[in-house]
């Protein structure tokens, strides 16, 4: 009995020491599982941010949950609210609609809500919105294509998994190339997946005798596209434009690969930004609410070195 008291007291002292001044606050982070390259990078950055911030802010506790589908993400969030008593939630919604009401429940409970990348179906629920700029991503890509092909030409377009994000990007792209003389031969879903885009590109190559360029719209898809082009031995395709800023692709841009002259960022590190801003909001009085858009930037050989992260898996 005596022993346990002492141990308990000692333990409490150790644990409570850094948080004597104030109570520990719990920040929940809910993100989709790493099912494709970009999400893998996003998971990496989330984990890094959590590890780093837990050291910087001893009074903060983080709960990180990854979900493989929207239903599981809803469960994760409900569990966080019910059992972990979170003071703030950082969420990258799998899909907007199904996540809206569970996130609203968190907001209604008085907790801080940070939404990342994908907006919720009802605006105004979140305290902070760290957004990727999907129409902007399409626009930057389109503008680059237009400038790289001043005389116009025939291209094929790869789309991702059918979602709002994908639609916004493609719309942005289409409006950017309007009047440039660029003609889209066909669009097909490569599902942000190397294998699928490889197959689709093989079929595009069978279908069209001449393709001037490819907007792969994603670096994973660009890898599949490149492999199919290499196999066919065709030399009519002048370049492939991917997107997101995968490190292999950035390396190619940096090294001057003629097939990959540029890339467009859609940084998976936006999750780290969101977690960090939330942590600041929880621990200080600095105003962090509002919308924080992370724009898409064109990577070319000149600036490529700035976007190459050696440690990232993506």
């Amino acid at each position: 009995m005596k022993f346990t008291t002492i141990t308990a007291a000692a333990l409490a002292a150790t644990l409570a020491l850094p948080a004597l001044a104030q109570d520990t606050k719990v920040i929940g982070v809910s993100i989709p599982a790493a099912t494709h390259g970009w999400a893998g990078g996003m998971n990496f950055h989330a984990q890094q941010a959590v590890n780093r911030l837990e050291e910087v802010y001893p009074q903060l506790d983080f709960v990180l949950a990854t979900a493989s589908d929207p239903a599981k993400q809803v469960n994760d969030i409900e569990d966080m609210l019910a059992t972990r008593n979170i003071s703030a939630l950082v969420v990258l919604p799998f899909e907007s609609e199904p996540l809206t009401s569970p996130v609203k429940a968190v907001a209604d409970s008085g907790a801080w809500v940070t939404v990342v990348d994908r907006g919720l179906a009802i605006p105004g629920i979140e305290d902070l919105y760290v957004a990727g700029d999907n129409p902007g991503f399409g626009k930057v890509s389109g503008e680059y294509m237009a400038s790289a092909m001043p005389d116009g030409g025939d291209i094929v377009v790869f789309r991702g998994i059918p979602t709002t994000i994908d639609n916004e990007r493609v719309e942005g792209f289409q409006s950017a190339i309007e009047g440039s003389g660029i003609n889209i031969l066909a669009m097909e879903h490569g599902n942000w997946n190397r294998d699928d885009s490889f197959t689709v590109m093989q079929d595009f190559l069978s279908k069209y005798d001449k393709i001037d360029a490819v907007w792969a719209s994603d670096d994973d898809m660009a890898i599949g596209v490149l492999a199919a082009i290499e196999q066919s031995g065709r030399d009519d395709i002048k370049f492939v434009l991917g997107g997101a800023g995968m490190k292999e692709m950035v390396a190619k841009v940096r090294d001057g690969d003629p097939m990959i002259p540029a890339d467009v960022t859609y940084p998976p590190s936006m999750i780290a930004t969101a977690i960090e801003m939330t942590a600041v909001g929880m621990t200080s009085t600095a105003p962090v609410s509002g919308t924080f858009t992370i724009g898409s930037v064109l990577i070319t050989q000149e600036n490529a070195a700035d976007f190459y992260y050696e440690d990232s898996p993506f």
Partner: peptide, 11 residues
């Protein structure tokens, strides 16, 4: 495989 790849891609 997700764990081996650390969520990303094994190349």
């Amino acid at each position: 495989v997700t764990w081996l790849a650390d969520g990303g891609t094994l190349s």
